[in-house]
Amino acid sequence: MEVGIRGWGAYIPRFRLSALEVAALWGYDGRLPKALGMVEKSVAEEDEDAATMGWYAARVAMRRAGVSGDDIDAVFFGTESKPYAVKPSATIVADALGVKRRKLATDLEFACRAAGEGMRISVGLVKSGLARNTLVIGSDTAQANPGDLLDFTASSGAVAFVVGPASGSAAVIEASVSYVTDTPDFWRRDRSPYPEHAEIFTGEPAYFHHIVSAAKLLMEETGLRVEDFDYAVFHQPNGRFPLQVARMLGIPQEKVLPGLVTPHVGNTYNASALLGLAKLLEEARPRSRVLLVTFGSGAGSDAFSIVVQDSAPELAKMGPRVADMMNSRVRVSYSEYSKFRGLLLKNVGG
């Protein structure tokens, strides 16, 4: 059975922190935001977390897919900022969405690509007949050590997809492949509040190697060439890397820019590349073929070939669009950001 995306939804909090303010506060050169391709990043409120944002995106995805909780056989929640270190978020979101009890449900963690894995697992489940429809959520309130380079990019957002039979879907998942190695480019140890990263090492041997390798594998296995893709969406840790990796693959910038959300949203980690895909489902002409390549530190990439179907433009009208959520924005100060994201050390209780 062919597998497709039957519905999608996204969530971007409306508050934004300016990259120029981050640079000024921590003594960085004022030209750094531009070099990173960053204007601002989204900031979740204090009562939001990966579960609440994922819930919103999933509700919209289910509405677009025209499914109820009884139609969902599996829930995969990809995040690296789980509200609980131990206790699944998938169960909270599933109950709040009214998903039936007879289901598979779990959280997946692989830095920024866990939701991409959820998509591939879903393709397998639907193809095999073990599931009719699955719900895949990528949601993060990404943490950054205050003053670290990640402070320019680590942001909050969510995206969700209902994966099911291709017939009547918004987009057909033609092919997919994964490429995974052990590469310590970015990590967070137990009890550490913020992640650490290996600076420049996160680029060449990590981001670029895995994305290029996965994309090439996909093209080898399918016989598709770069010219066969109308759009390309890559994981977006900043505004610059996706354009660089496109150049390495010989993909022109104009095929990448429509799905590039990070300069105005930040790196939403598990939602990053998939938020770009959601935007394309709302904007691309039917029959467009999209190359989607995720990346998660540690490290791995999933490459997908996705063909937008005739129903996508109609389904896009049934929920808030990514572009609208990008435009609906209110600037907050670093103080408000610190309060919203719980960065201030307080006595608790009372």
Partner: peptide, 20 residues
């Protein structure tokens, strides 16, 4: 309606979610 945190038993307790 949106799902949000109502409260949590700080710092290690259960998080209570609800509709806002």
């Amino acid at each position: 309606a949106v799902l949000r945190r109502y409260a949590s038993d700080d710092p290690y307790g259960v998080i209570y979610y609800g509709i806002k």
